[in-house]
Every structure is written in C-alpha cells, then in structure tokens.
Design a protein around this nucleic acid. Structure first.
Lengths: 228, 228
DNA sequence: ACGCAAAAGTAAGGTAAACGTAAGGCTGGC
DNA sequence: GCCAGCCTTACGTTTACCTTACTTTTGCGT
C-alpha cells in the first residue's frame, strides 16, 4: 500500500479531483502542472505510477512520457481530453499502460490505476515491514540495512505463522503444528533453536528481541512496530 | 513471443477478426464461443491471457471471469458491446486488466493486449538480460560472451516459467507442472537434471549459480541482477 | 523404414545446508 | 535461593539437492 502517484495536469480543478479520488484510496499524491515541474517531482518523489495529461503548457505528454521512461520503467496512464483514435493509439503505441479519455468517472480512474499497480507490483511488493527489517515473502528472504538474508524453510514457516496471527500470542503447540504438521511433542527445544535462528536474521540484537517476543508460559508473538 | 491467447466470443465474425489481428502479431489464438467451451479450452491450452466478451450464450462473462481467476491468476481483457458505465466498472472492479468497448480498432486491441502482457510477463522486448547473459526468446537461445547457445524445449520452458515468476520462488511442483503439464510426481530428479543443464548454459559457474538459485525446501528462483 | 544425433529420463553415489539434539547457562517468579 | 521456563552454543545427523555417467526416447534426414 501507500503507493506514490504523480499526477501531471495543468487544470487545477482536475488536479484537485484526482488528488481527492486517490487520497481516499490511501495513495500519496504528488501534483505537477507542467513538463518541467513533472520531471523535477518525478526525480524527487520517485512515484510508483504516473498519470499524464497529453496537453501541457510547455510541451506534450508524449515527449514527457519518453523522458520518464528513459529514466525508469515506471507505469504511466495517459489522461486526455482528445478522444481521437490517433492520440489514443499513439499513447498506447509508445508503451503506456493505459489511456483514459476525459471526462472520466472517478471510479474508472481508481479501478484502472489499481489494475495497473496490481500487475506491476504484485511481485516484488509482496513485502511486510517489521520495523527496520523487511520481509520479502515471494523470495523467502528478509532485508536489513540493504543486506538480504535468505530464510530456511522452517524459519519461513515460523515467521509466516507468527505474522498471520497478527500480533497475537501463538502457543508453542500451534507453532509446532505449523512447522511439523502433527502433534509434535518433544520438539519444544528444537522450536526454540529455530526461534533463535530466526531472531538472528530479523533482529538487530537477537538476545534482546524487539519483534519476535517471548511470552513466558504462553508462547511467542510478533510485534510489528518496535517502540523505543 | 508465442503467447497463447484465448478469445471468448460468440460472434463468428469477431472471432475471425481477433484471430487475424493477433495471429499477425505472432500470438497463438484459441477461440471459444461459450462459457462451457471456454473453460474446457482454458484448462487444455493454459493460455497466457484471455479476451472475454461479456455477453455469452450460456452465461455472462463476469461469472466466467470468476471461474477462470479461481483456477489461475490469468490476465483478462473484457470486450463488450455494452458501453454502459456500469458494466465497465463492474468488469474492472472484479479485477480485470482492461475493458475494451466494441467496436474497437484492431490496433487498439493489439496495443492494449501488448501493454498487459508486457507488465504481467515482464517481456517488453524480444530479449531479456540476466546479468551477463542475454535471453533471446524468439530464437530460443541464450548469448554469453558473444557465443549463442541453443536451449532445448524443456530448458526453454523452465527458463520461461522462472522468468515469468519475476524473481519469486517457484515450487518444484509448479515447475513440474510447467514442464509436463500434469501432476508429475516422481519427476523431481529429472527436473534437477534439467536445472543443471540450464545452469550450464546461463551461468558462468554452474556449480555456484548467481541467477538460477535454489531455495532449499521451497523451490527455485531466478535472480536477475547478480550481486557480488 | 532405417540410422543417427540430440534430447530427455534414470539411477546412484556424493555433499553440504538445514535440521535436530543435548547440555550447560541464564533469568524472572515465588 | 531455588525451581521452572527459556536461552544459547556446539556438535552430530539427516535429508534435500547436486552431479555424473549411462540408458532410453524422440525427432529428423536419407
């Protein structure tokens, strides 16, 4: 979530409309009114997607599109008042992800943007945050300070079980169940070893964990935000 | 390329038109005229994308969409003669990748399909980079140090499956599925041999792979950029 | 139809990462 | 201070995967 969107349009009314629509969906919206401003904001904010009007005061959206794509393969949705086939085909032909003609329904913008984001970031963005460490579920790794560490199968299953419990306490039994899919008694110690190993990968100080917390006598739980 | 596309529409004229348009672009086109037929062909051909008319003789495209997505997360583009906002929003709201209203320009269909496929399969161009080795999809070969090596059918399918997963872990089962299209149990060893052979073609040091990585207990994944 | 070469599949021994075990050391609660 | 529950470490074991050589199958040209 919390995608950053850059909207490039010179009409203030539309700017505000877009901002409202997308803000309601939880996006962070940046606005630019010209090609020059768009480039500046694009570099500064590094948005996850760009909404691009074709008509701009200091140039056309098509050439701006080329500049953006040369810098990064960012998803772009064209917005245009010109419903001419030629313009639409040109935009799509350049490699845009969608082309929406004005006036459009707010709902349609939302849905089309969502569709594009879903396709582009479905992979790679299947991540979870745990304070300063990031979990990349799809790759089976965690990242801290830019360094990526691979999880083993057991560690992965353990972390997933704890994460899926949404911060609630998970009993030793439940964890054993998840790791060995059976009423594995006598594995409590082994579980502890796996807990330790996981802590070494996700915690800054494994001996004083701030996320993977032990609840004496009950089990373990995963705290997502580490407070000071 | 050689993407497989399933077009579902009951008008024969449109069927032929779609077939011509897409065949010219090098796609393999399957056609179905009803929901029932669509499901059969979908399972048999396992297409890379589906073009779906909303109006079908034995049901509506929306519910068929649900059935397809339940089986697999395949990209779907709706085609519809109904230009009503309601239908468009419903289709997109369900999670379709695009919604094209009839009549449409052949060129627009091509471009919109291309846009979706580009995002889903990350294959904007005919070639892909894997660090120092280059994959030439159209020729079924890889190039390293200027030397071009041909891939076998199995190696190609394997590489394609891994690439299409965008760096995520692919389970042994999923890979077997892709290579033998069936729940091939007992082929795990054979798969490993193919992995090895592929590594010998794409890796500088096959025994210490930097791209085709094994994730013990989970599967394999393809890393695009090799870090030191 | 035949033979050849390339590709795919089989089998078996080897290896190391991941897992499990155990034993001694903490730490908080009574 | 003592016990129980948990931590931590080192070390042994296992199992999933690797590797190679060999056999079978497939596809193709003659």
């Amino acid at each position: 979530m919390a995608y950053r969107i850059l909207a490039v349009d010179d009409e203030v009314a539309l700017q505000n409309m877009i901002r409202e629509i997308l803000a309601a969906d939880g996006y962070t919206v940046e606005v630019a009114g010209s090609c020059a401003e768009a480039l500046t904001r694009f570099r500064a904010a590094s948005p996850d997607a760009v909404l691009l009007d074709v008509m701009l005061p200091d140039g056309d959206g098509f050439s701006l599109f080329g500049q953006l794509r040369r810098e990064r393969d960012v998803p772009v949705l064209f917005l245009s008042a010109r419903d001419e086939d030629e313009a639409r085909l040109r935009g799509l032909g350049l490699g845009a992800d969608d082309y929406i003609t004005k006036p459009f329904l707010p709902q349609e913008l939302r849905l089309r943007l969502r569709a594009v984001l879903r396709r582009v970031y479905r992979r790679g963005s299947e991540t979870a945050r745990l304070g300063e460490t990031e979990i990349l579920w799809g790759r089976g790794t965690v990242r801290r300070d830019g360094a990526e560490t691979a999880l083993t199968a057991k560690e992965f299953a353990l972390l997933k079980k704890l994460w899926d419990s949404g911060g609630n306490i998970v009993t030793i039994d439940a964890l054993c169940q998840a790791l060995w899919d059976g009423p594995m008694v006598g594995y409590e110690n082994t579980l502890m070893v796996h807990i330790r190993r996981l802590r070494e990968k996700i915690e800054a100080d494994p001996s004083h964990p701030r996320h993977l917390l032990t609840v004496r006598g009950l089990g373990y739980r995963l705290e997502r935000e580490a407070e000071g």
